[in-house]
Design a protein around this nucleic acid. Structure first.
Lengths: 216, 216
DNA sequence: CGTGACCCTGACCAATTGGTCAGATCGCTT
DNA sequence: AAGCGATCTGACCAATTGGTCAGGGTCACG
């Protein structure tokens, strides 16, 4: 039999998963954690299986026992991550108070930049390279969500609850301003000096910026 | 003699340059252009000399006739680029009208994102990876310039010409918002759809955003 | 038109890369 | 404690990578 016998590869569209051993869960987590570290720092092509293996504390053949290829590791990582990434936008409540909903989104996104910089950089890396490995389904899912939320924001604008702004570009501005502090961390710290915490000032600045932008 | 006889490598600190042949100028330009294309799309580690050679229409050994190593190509590229990159900020005139100076800076930076997206992505790639190949001198040069301009902005704030804002974070916000349209071009276009020009809406949105932010 | 410096190439090399495989070992169930 | 699948490994492989080298072609200039 030529079956390689890989353990079930948990993905978005899982076909046939036996319940995942204790060891399987443990090692898959180790691998994905290591892959996040390495991929986010060097991009897909720049990362090597050896690096990931060392980082995970496993042998290279053992990596390939749990995932069939380097690409498979990357796909699994990206798939799991997009959920986390979209969560703050999903949480934007159309029934809530417009200003505080949007401010809350900004704060959550900035906190993600602070707490999960590697995830942010992984996405940035993928985008920079034209997102060749971000499957179309994921792309569609993102557009759909953004369009839906943009509609909500447009209604808020029309009702005079917030200033009239292009909803899409408003969302882009939130992404850009928050992710900048994760993706360009080195640059920010180089300019600010080693003493200050960038996120301190960033929080205050963004609060003020969006307060002024959104005031009707 | 072990001298490899490489043509003078023009860099920031050039020691000994004979005047550069016609062919040398031509081919160095071809190589740097190709390197920009490839490095900006795949990062340093992800790029290969073969790719660059093909893109430049030269043979690999011929690349290494003009530059002693892959790293040297990258360094030459980054060095030459930082000048271009800092130019819009340098042009910020302390004697000019504060609002229009800053708005002008925003517009110039956005135009650079539109006209030179590869250069933007190259820098972004370098930052994402912790800027390991951005020499300290260049880093210091950047901090110095930013600090100087931040002082100007602080004075404008204190004089009531613009709203009181943290100057460093203001500069960060300009970088973030403008470069986003180059670095995340795929994402922006995916969300906006294939018909619209992102930079159209971006220009108007950023004008309004900074108008509202800076109004005293 | 010759001659020396400049320019370019095919062939090659050692190291690294993603991936395979036969078999050893582990750990859970009976 | 036997057995069997799950887990793991060292050795190996073909392809790719950055880089070298000896020699051949070409250009400018006297």
């Amino acid at each position: 039999m030529k079956d390689t016998g890989h353990p079930a590869q948990a993905g978005a569209a899982n076909e046939q998963d036996k319940p995942l051993t204790r060891i399987q869960k443990l090692n898959r987590r180790k691998i994905l954690e290591a892959a996040l570290e390495v991929f986010s720092a060097h991009g897909f092509r720049g990362a090597t299986l050896d690096q990931i293996a060392v980082e995970a504390g496993l042998s290279k053949p053992n990596l390939l026992y749990y995932f069939p290829s380097k690409e498979a590791i990357h796909v699994a990582l990206m798939g799991g991550l997009l959920e986390i990434w979209l969560a703050p936008l999903r949480a934007l409540n159309p029934q809530g108070d417009p200003r505080s909903e949007l401010m809350g989104y900004v704060r959550r996104k900035l906190q993600m930049s602070r707490d999960m910089p590697r995830e942010s950089r992984l996405f940035a890396n993928e985008m920079l390279q034209g997102a060749p490995r971000l499957s179309d389904t994921l792309g569609d899912e993102l557009k759909e969500l953004v369009d839906a939320k943009a509609e909500v924001i447009r209604d808020w604008s029309a009702a005079g609850k917030i200033a009239p702004v292009d909803p899409h570009h408003l969302i882009f501005s939130i992404w850009a301003l928050t992710q900048h502090y994760a993706d360009f961390d080195v640059q920010v710290r180089a300019v600010l000096g080693p003493k200050a915490d960038p996120f301190e000032g960033a929080g205050q600045f963004l609060d003020m910026l969006f307060e002024r932008l959104l005031a009707p």
